[in-house]
Design a protein around this nucleic acid. Structure first.
Lengths: 354, 354
DNA sequence: CACGGCACGGCAAACGTTTACAAGGCGGCG
DNA sequence: CGCCGCCTTGTAAACGTTTGCCGTGCCGTG
């Protein structure tokens, strides 16, 4: 006899297994499994009800780990981000979660703080927990040893049926969700142009970051296309930070006479705003300022910032959809997401000169 | 014979099990398990090395699900937050993660958006995935049916050896990390008092939120203690939002003559700042403003806000430590965390009057 | 009336671990 | 020289599922 034949009695605490349900319903474990897991193997309506009733009575919850062991599907996915306290990644995670919730997948979250060692650790841990997919929301690290190890691990993972999704530029291959940074900046420049601005300055980011190069390219491309006169003196490096943005704004002020300034990210734009404020220069009356990203702060800075929203939530959502498709072995194209301009109070319409 | 005796050959792709390691090392699965899991059961140094070598060669990764099945410890914990895109919760999650990383635990994250149904769903899912502990970073929802169901589920969980940790005021019992909101506000009032302020206004939050009541109590208690003259006219409701804060600030302006205003949260303080700015009232020269929470925006608003930092990261960290202790069946007291004042530019020192 | 097929249910193996128990070998002690 | 006990290893059961395969009974059809 099994070691607790009294199982039909105690239905108070403790967690119950399929065996308890089966016994209570007076059927075999196999049958109980079939009804609980929605198997295609037919079960009579009568026994189905008995089982359901029993399961309900015991508040039975199937053990996903056991199920995963035999089906080789854990119904979990791991997501790796650089910093979970950054709303940028928080939004992505939220999108991912909302996207996979309906299909009953769960999310492991790991925040690497850009530490290659930690990143590898976390990925390894994901493997150990048999995740069905891994999402890289973090962007590539440059450490060579890291890259090599990661690539090898990723190969094993995909060979074993694992799915990899990439939500940023990353060395790894996998289903991809793509935000076109170059185009985004170009669009902002065209927007300023439409509003009458011709003498436009640009606050750029650190030159060793891929994304800041790409965004800069978007600026120069649009300027050329529109026949704007922007030389190197129109561009200053603000290192993607608020204080850097303030200083870069100062440089521009000393150097050139502008009607508008575009910052490669919102943080620098906010810094510029602060600087202009303390210099007594009115925004947008005397000078217009625009940013890019639409971070939460953008709305609450010295003056509400006009910027372009990067659809982080949507990126997560699309990532989830890609991931689910891949798990179903459907193939799907990479998806392309675009931002939209959110107009607040920092840009004025002026009479185009020249 | 086992179905793939060729296992010793293929060490390219695919994932390997303990059996493969054992075969390659020429030992039994049990022995391999003992060395890989660091069992206390003795193994000779020689065989230990053989096994390690084999595991290394195959890049063996133990399957945590299988291990969990037999040890009844999944080495996972689930955390429930209200909104993962809110840095407040992001910081908490980061602290938690950092705290459990060393002990090799992983984190399931779920963001409920304050939806009772979703919240129950997620908790149920955590159970199904056999988490060892659940952390409630979200605060209590008032829905009665929800409360009842949750309580019942929680009881089953703890009865089964699960651990519950609570990081905010919540109906659930469990190990608790506690930030004293009342004391925090009182401390801010005392701070303003030290800086010479006697006529102080207060921007309060919605009265149906426990936390805003508690914070208000902190204000009145401190005012009384210091012999400040604060009647109802000194208090306005800003609903915890930026626009609400701006409006409430307006009311106060019409009603009383103040030297300082304390907001129950930073968002309202920022709103007040904006309002004062557009009314041409200088901060801090003509009026001082202080907030509470130290959200990221606080530093970048119209004027850098003096506020009190709620140690969210530390809350997560302490939660992790509590959780690990409970899992080890050590008992631990609830922990009490305190905030610290961060002085920026929005509060002036003045000559105390009267 | 016989037989084929289908609907339904059970048996048992399998997933990858851990671990209680047993067994073998060897050294030490009486 | 015999026996006890320890050190090391192996055998096998167990964790909670799913699922291939088989058996039974019933119904329909020829």
């Amino acid at each position: 006899m099994t070691r607790d034949t009294d199982s039909a009695v105690k239905k108070g605490t403790e967690s119950h297994s399929l065996r308890h349900v089966a016994e209570l319903a007076g059927v075999s474990v196999a049958t109980a499994s079939r009804v609980m897991s929605g198997s295609s193997h037919p079960v009579s309506e009568q026994t189905r009800e008995k089982v359901l009733e029993a399961a309900n009575q015991l508040s039975f919850q199937p053990n996903r780990l056991a199920r995963a062991l035999v089906t080789a599907r854990s119904h979990t996915v791991g997501v790796l981000v650089h910093d979970i306290s950054d709303p940028y990644f928080g939004e992505i995670v939220k999108g991912l979660e909302d996207g996979i919730h309906a299909e009953d997948y769960r999310l492991f979250v790991a925040s690497s703080e850009r530490d290659p060692q930690k990143e590898l650790d976390y990925v390894r841990a994901f493997f150990a927990h048999q995740v069905d997919a891994i999402v890289f929301a973090a962007s590539s690290l440059t450490d060579a040893a890291y890259a090599e190890t990661l690539e090898a691990m990723a190969k094993r993972f995909t060979d074993g049926g694992g799915v990899i999704v990439v939500l940023s530029d990353h060395l790894l291959r996998g289903a991809k969700v793509w935000f076109d940074n170059k185009r985004a900046v170009s669009e902002m420049v065209r927007y300023l142009h439409r509003r009458g601005h011709r003498r436009i300055g640009y606050l750029t980011g650190p030159s060793d970051l891929e994304v800041s190069l790409v965004r800069l390219a978007g600026f120069t491309a649009a300027a050329e296309e529109l026949g704007l006169d922007v030389g190197p003196e129109n561009i200053a490096n603000g290192h993607f930070t608020a204080v850097g943005g303030g200083e870069a704004m100062g440089e521009l002020l000393d150097r050139v006479d502008l009607t508008a300034v575009l910052a490669a990210n919102d943080l620098m734009a906010i810094g510029a705003l602060r600087r202009l404020h303390s210099a007594g220069i009115g925004v947008p009356d005397e000078l217009s300022v625009a940013g890019l990203d639409d971070i939460p702060i953008a709305e609450y800075g010295p003056v509400p910032l006009t910027t372009m929203r990067v659809p982080t939530y949507q990126i997560g959502l699309e990532g989830a959809s890609l991931l689910l498709k891949a798990l179903r072995k459907e193939d799907a194209d990479d998806v392309h997401v675009t931002g939209e301009i959110v107009e607040r109070d920092s840009v004025a319409t002026i009479e185009p000169e020249q």
